[in-house]
Amino acid sequence: MSALLTETEDKPQTAWDDAASWYEASARQRVRSLLDAGSFKEFIGPEQREVSPHLRVFELPEQFDDGMIVGRGRLSGEPAFIAAQEGRFMGGAFGEVHGAKLTGLLRAARYVKSIPVLILFDTGGVRLQEANAGELAIAEIMRALIEARMAGVKVVGLIGGRAGCYGGGGLIAGCCSALAVSEQGRISVSGPEVIETNRGVEEFDSKDRALVWRTMGGKHRRLLGGADAFTSDTIQSFRDIALHLIRSAPGFGMDVLKAEQARLGERLERFSSCADALDIWKAEGVPDAEAVPAMPAEDFIAVANKVREPRYDAR
């Protein structure tokens, strides 16, 4: 372990740092800097010590917030509920307490109706040491999320953390009203290692980082329509896109579900036989598909907006 560590990420931060990297920031730092200064109020904060009751069975250290921060604050003056996962604690995985906090927040949002919810995903999926509780937590969150959307709540997911958004986290993301993703924000159900372990390295070489990024990374998800917006990796740009998506996100009901069925069906028709993300991007009409992975965020956003308008009515 290096003595230098990566200390920038945990600098106690009080002042706004707009250019700070979302990827490098801790969950607390993201929450504090995303919301209006001083507006965040946490529910069941770390001083309550509501830790996982299961990690000690495995002789594993606990974290006082169990890797999930929930609370309320203001975004550009308007009230917002917020939930953030800490991707470095247990890979941001869903355990019993971790998940239940988000469930409770979404149930409250459903009751209140008028306050949007921001979910800052950073997760490898279910926490295996409490797998059954974690799996069920994800199912409960999805139900609470859809019930909240039915009541008119906008639920916006922000994805750009170290752990990405894998496993059940990917399914919850798929339930949100709208998603913003940065290049680092991978979204997928099975992770690269899981596919390789189960199907062999010929199916998926998890060490081929370029393959991982172009199959699961933010740029592909934006071009495919899996995310509504692509953003650069700064806290300021995540804040801007969150505000935009809260305003533009759709309601929820039969029309949205039918539109999503059509959207996904069309995707299968068009890209079913594509062997690689590059083939999909070419079929989408991206002028210089090979250049996409190295393209700076601003240039990519321009290309993506030209190729595929976000479908706000079909998620």
């Binding site: 945990d10 607390r28 770390p46 001083e47 604690f89």
Partner: peptide, 18 residues
């Protein structure tokens, strides 16, 4: 009255001050 810093990960720690 309270402050928290750090994260519980390999080679790292969290400190809650009250």
């Amino acid at each position: 009255s309270m402050a928290i810093i750090g994260v519980v990960a390999s080679g790292n720690l969290e400190v809650l001050a009250e």
